[in-house]
Design a protein around this nucleic acid. Structure first.
Length: 480
DNA sequence: CGTCAGATCGGTATCGATCTGACGGTGCAATACT
């Protein structure tokens, strides 16, 4: 049967979207694949269709619990019952049940941490999978080395024994990120599909400030005269809350979002934003992954992101509906210092390495350091991981190298911010691609007619408002 | 490394200058508490 027929039979589509067919064909022929497809371009179909053809369970490694839940719900709505999210939401009994019948499921979603648990490993060793999917695979590079080391450990698991083909999926990945994915997962001559990273409908603005303090005034004035929905990114939780306060005082429907809130609160805020009940999310970089909202019109960065990959990921949340959207990056001299501190501040130091070894020699559990509050939980886990991988001196060198790499990544972002050339060309070039064509309102350096964009938006907004008003009247009339 | 809020200081007003210390992102799983 032709793939198109299978597509029609199971999903009801007549044709594939760009990249899907190539990726699926490579998987079916047993190849590893790295596929970079923009969100909303049918990434999940790339593993869902093979799951129906290959008749063995597909394992999907996912970075966030909320992401797993969304995908499970989506599949269930679609009528698929043989789907499970193996994670800490399950009770002990539910987990035991799920593990016992694991081979019965068609789709198994799980986290790297859960995947590496002994009971899960033992179960998987005794069953055959048709495909392993690493969703949001850039997390390997972004988080594996100094935040969630289990993202590196899944690589060890991949390299032992027979395994099915691996599909690594992501929306955007720089050349370095692709290299990290390839190496960490020990992929064998993977088929690489890279969709064009340029998003021509996103206008790339950049505003320079002499004085950092002028940003708040500028942002509030800007958002008052332009339309949302939008995301304002900040580099600390506290600032996110302060700006949210400013937005609300200005009469905007806004909410703050960062990792300090409970999962329930975050879920609630996210849902309100998706449903159009909020115009602005004022957030740290905790916000965004897995957000499926087509009509985000603006993404503003109050301070620079720590690297180009993050920037691309964050602005990429705007304008998924293809209509014009605006990304504005604010910069004042010295902003890079905070960015550099934040991304390296939590790395373990050489003295932490020494202390760890000293405790180990005295046969004291090194976790004592944690109890004494000598370092953070994250830093301890990272330290513990690397000291089990390689000798002390190598670990020290590596930690030093991480910091240098992170500084360098900030400087690369800074270079793009400060360029006098086309921002779009620079960005796309950073991803190893060449810009095909410059769109209208390309970027700050090519020229953006802010007024034109804003006027169009204000008109659109008025129209929407009127419709809302009319429909509300209608509702009132009907209910009376 | 830089910012910012609150404390302290100076010299004797009712506040401005200076000092000090706290703070600064991302998530999983599982446990110990209310």
């Amino acid at each position: 049967m032709e793939l198109e027929q299978t597509l029609a039979k199971y999903f009801g589509y007549a044709t594939f979207r760009p990249g899907q067919k190539e990726v699926i064909e490579a998987i079916l022929s047993g190849k590893d694949v790295i596929a970079l497809l923009p969100t909303g371009m049918g990434k999940s179909l790339c593993y869902q269709l093979p799951a129906y053809l290959l008749q063995k369970p597909v394992l999907i490694v996912s970075p966030l619990l909320s992401l797993m839940q969304d995908q499970v719900e989506q599949l269930k709505r679609f009528g698929e019952k043989r789907v499970v999210a193996l994670n800490s939401f399950l009770t002990v009994e539910e987990k035991r049940y799920a593990l016992h019948f694991l081979e019965q499921y068609r789709f198994i979603f799980t986290s790297p941490e859960m995947l590496l648990q002994q009971q899960v490993q033992e179960k998987l060793a005794n069953m055959t999978l048709s495909l392993i999917v690493v969703d949001e695979a850039h997390c390997i590079s972004q988080w594996g080395f100094d935040f969630r080391p289990d993202y590196l450990r899944i690589g060890d698991w991949f390299s032992q024994g027979n395994r099915p083909p691996v599909l690594a999926l992501s929306a955007t990945a720089t050349e370095k990120v692709v290299k990290d994915i390839h190496a960490t997962l020990s992929l064998h001559a993977p088929f690489e599909f890279m969709y064009n990273v340029d998003r021509p409908n996103i206008h790339l603005g950049r505003v320079l400030f002499e004085d950092r303090g002028d940003k708040a005034k500028w942002i509030v004035e800007h958002v008052k005269k332009t339309a949302g929905p939008g995301i304002l990114y900040l580099s600390s939780r506290k600032r996110a809350e302060q700006y949210c306060e400013l937005f609300m005082q200005a009469g905007l429907r806004a909410a703050a979002y960062h990792a300090g809130y409970s999962a329930e609160d975050r879920q609630f805020i996210q849902q309100q934003f998706i449903d159009g009940e909020l115009d602005w999310i004022v957030a740290t970089n905790a916000f965004g992954m897995g957000i499926n909202k087509g009509d985000i019109r603006q993404v503003i960065h109050e301070t620079m992101p720590a690297n180009v990959a993050n920037y691309m990921q964050e602005i990429g949340r705007a304008g998924r509906d293809g209509k014009p959207a605006l990304a504005i990056l604010l910069y004042s001299d010295g902003d890079e210092e905070l960015a550099k501190f934040v991304v390296t501040g939590d790395l373990p130091s050489s003295s932490h390495v020494d202390r760890y070894q000293e405790l180990a020699l005295q046969r004291i559990a090194p976790s004592q350091m944690l109890k004494n509050g000598e370092l953070s939980e994250t830093a301890f886990r990272v330290l513990d991981y690397w000291l089990h991988q390689e000798p002390e001196e190598r670990v020290k060198a590596r930690l030093h190298h991480f910091a240098l790499e992170k500084y360098q990544a900030v400087d690369e972002m800074l270079k793009i911010i400060k360029t006098k050339d086309c921002l779009r060309e620079q960005l796309v070039g950073y991803f190893g691609q060449k810009l095909q064509k410059k769109p209208e309102n390309c970027c700050e350096n090519c020229g953006i007619h802010y007024d034109e964009i804003n006027t169009v938006r204000m008109k659109e907004e008025k129209k929407v408002e009127m419709m809302a008003w009319e429909s509300r009247l209608k509702q009132l009339l009907i209910s009376d």
